[in-house]
Write a protein that binds this DNA or RNA. Structure first.
Length: 637
RNA sequence: GCCGGUGUAGCUCAGUAGUUAGAGUGAUUCCUUGGUAAGGAAUAGGUCAUGAGUUCAAUUCUCAUCAUUGGCUCCA
């Protein structure tokens, strides 16, 4: 007998060799139907694997749990693989994975990549699912598995990198696949399948390798969950900043101006300016000083900084003068300019930290396939600053920057973000410049600063900048794609390359450290994410138009204009709807334009000198005196 | 940059299996002067992304380019 402890602490004895699915059925037959996966002593296991260990703790997962969904989608990958082979018998399966919403399988279709899969694929997957075959995981000797896949070089490649005990296979129905699990019990649970899209990818993500077809799909145990997902997906698409940007008249692109170069309309400009003002005020409190540097710079500047070696092909060349032997580029970063500013005078240790801030417009030739609305452009505005400090001040200063970034995110309602410590990839060291000891120190500094702050972070190797490690703040867009917004970077390299110095208390010259930082990252990208998070319903202080006056008829325009001028006097961004439309139409349009407040004025209001207020998405708030309305507005702001 | 999809009026989209196009909405003008999410009418607005090719004839078919879009790769 073995003793099983359940999640809620309940204990029960079972015969050795019992499987998790049998335990689930024994506990509650109805609930067992919802069980998709289980873990034993914290390790996710197959539902069909007999348990022999005594004294174990078991936890079951349903659809509501990420691990349950993961097992469900993992199992769906097998159905996809099986069905793809039925349709394309020559195809070579490679690697499949469950993802946040669904799963994918990379397959070499032999005839070259193909991306049009008919609904036939979905139907045949479901036919296979209905056979309700059990997913069984078992180990095979490495040599035998290599033999099994002698026609499939991709699988051989994977197996060669596995340890002897790790070559496990999964079989269900007539299909066998190299697999490490974990699966749901049987395929019949998979009731609905959607093939979402597919694209060409390279084996091991290397463009020198064979091109494969990646087929994305998603599956569900019932119609309700599928409809929920589809509805959410539709809702998410409505929040797309490219769509809302057009609808709310914020920005625009023109083929004549060029790809990836946003044109900011008047309303979008108000939004930008408001954000800039907000950040400037916040930074002032943190001791930043504003600077302005040109949009272009001499190539030799970027030679000193080291950027040119890495990014020359991604820079815009503006002018080449043979006579003077100089080349001038559009700037793609502000740090070299700020270093030159720092160098323009001598500094005492008493002057540090020195914090130079600039809304710097930079231009980078992003690959055509990378351009994406405002989140990836070829011209954008960094809310950049460079802090020149002593090594003693570094960690403390880093804390202050973290505080600032967190304050910004909180003020704008971003509650969910990932904080990522981006370090070097120790396998590709030629990507980085600077001395080993400086890198080590910088990486330790970041980790120390973050540990002190007790922030939930994850460490990712290979995401560092070429001159130093970073702390990145990542936020998801409406379609769950991650974007890096805020970033804080420690740099021992540029101070050396620019030979930056300050005079210490002992009269000797010392090298400062630079912290590069941008809380928004790029203003364009930040606004894109802000649009998607608010769905275009901006907080009052950011709304391009804050109040719209709606006269009931032409007779009350005069009164409305009086109110408008009063609002102007208090700096409220206001407008009047002068069209000869009915009130209902004007209100509808104001609601669609997401204007926070509508002020409706007619005979009644004119008679007693009031205004009727309707708040966006809230509705009629009744009559207000102008003073009472102002108070309401200032509470909003 | 790579593999697919898409490109028709300011916007959202129909349509033409080859004979130079239509709706809704927005815009303009007129009527209407209305009370919390769409009042009515008329008018203007398109070399059907661009360039080549096939054809008696191309917005429609083919190719290329550009833009855009979903992934991949990249992201100082």
């Amino acid at each position: 007998m073995i003793c099983i402890k359940f999640y809620d602490g309940f204990l029960k004895d079972y015969p050795s060799g019992i499987t998790p699915i049998e335990i689930a059925l024994d506990m509650n037959e109805k609930k067992a139907r919802e069980v998709l996966s289980a873990s034993i002593n914290g390790h996710q296991v197959e539902l069909s694997t007999p348990i022999t260990k005594i004294n174990i703790q078991i936890v079951f997962y349903s659809w509501e749990n990420t691990l349950g969904k993961k097992a469900f989608w993992h199992s769906s990958i097998h159905l996809l693989g099986q069905t793809l082979l039925q349709i394309h018998p020559q195809a070579k399966l490679t690697i499949g994975n469950p993802i946040e919403n669904g799963f994918y399988y990379d397959v070499d279709l032999v005839d070259g990549p193909q991306q049009n899969f008919s609904s036939n694929l979905e139907e045949r997957m479901l036919e296979n699912a209905r056979k309700n075959s059990i997913f069984e995981l078992y180990s095979i000797y490495k040599a035998k598995s290599l033999d099994y896949y002698k026609e499939n070089l991709y699988k051989i490649d994977i197996i060669k990198n596995l340890q002897e005990g790790d070559t496990t296979f999964c079989s269900n129905d007539d299909f066998v696949d190299l697999c490490r699990g974990t699966h749901i019990f049987s395929s019949g649970k998979i009731k609905y399948v959607k093939i979402l899209n597919s694209s060409g990818v390279y084996w091991h993500s290397d463009e020198k390798n064979q091109q494969l077809t990646r087929v994305y799909g998603i599956s569900f145990p019932n119609e309700k969950h599928m409809n929920e997902y589809l509805l959410k997906f539709e809702e998410a698409k409505k929040r797309d900043h490219r769509k809302l940007g057009k609808e709310l008249d914020l920005f625009n692109f023109s083929d004549n101006v060029g790809a990836g170069l946003p044109l900011w309309k008047t309303k979008g400009t108000v939004l930008r300016r408001s954000l800039e003002d907000f950040l400037m005020r916040a930074q002032k409190k943190y001791g930043y000083e504003m600077v302005v540097t040109p949009h272009i710079g001499n190539k030799k500047l970027y030679k000193i900084s080291g950027h040119i070696d890495k990014y020359e092909n991604d820079s815009f060349l503006t002018r080449f003068s043979h006579h003077f032997g100089e080349e001038i580029l559009l700037k793609s970063m502000n740090c070299p300019h700020h270093c030159e500013l720092f160098k323009s005078q001598s500094w005492s240790y008493r002057d540090l930290p020195k914090r130079f801030a600039e809304f710097g417009n930079v231009y980078r030739y992003e690959q055509s396939g990378e351009l994406h609305g405002l989140t990836r452009t070829r011209g954008f505005t960094q809310d950049d600053a460079h802090i020149f400090c002593t090594t003693d001040q570094l960690v403390d200063e880093f804390h202050r920057v973290i505080d600032l970034v967190l304050y910004i995110l909180k003020s704008l309602g971003f509650e969910q973000y990932t904080i990522q410590i981006s370090l070097r990839d120790l396998k590709i060291m030629n990507k980085y410049i600077g001395k080993e000891q400086n890198w080590k120190k910088a990486e330790e500094d970041i980790i120390e600063a973050v540990c002190n702050k007790n922030l939930p972070t994850k460490i990712i190797h290979g995401e560092a900048a070429f001159y130093g490690p970073k702390l990145d703040f990542l936020i998801q867009d409406s379609l769950k794609r991650n974007w890096q917004l805020g970033t804080i970077q420690i740099d021992y390299s540029l101070p050396e390359r620019f030979d930056l110095q300050y005079q210490g208390p002992d009269n000797l010259l010392y090298r400062p450290v630079i912290i590069h930082r941008a809380p928004f990252g790029s203003l364009e990208r930040f606004i894109a994410l802000l649009i998607e998070h608010t769905g275009g319903n901006f907080p009052f202080w950011l709304s391009p138009i804050q109040v719209i006056l709606i006269p009931i008829s032409e007779k009350y325009i005069f009164y409305a204009e009086k109110i408008l001028h009063l609002l102007y006097k208090y700096g409220i961004r206001s407008n009047i709807d002068l069209r000869s439309e009915k009130t209902g139409k004007k209100i509808r349009d104001a609601e669609i334009n997401k204007i926070p407040f509508m002020a409706i004025v007619g005979e009644k209001e004119m008679y007693d000198g009031t205004i009727s207020i309707r708040a966006h998405t809230i509705g009629n708030m009744g009559k207000f005196t102008f003073e009472a309305f102002l108070e309401l507005l200032f509470n909003e702001a």
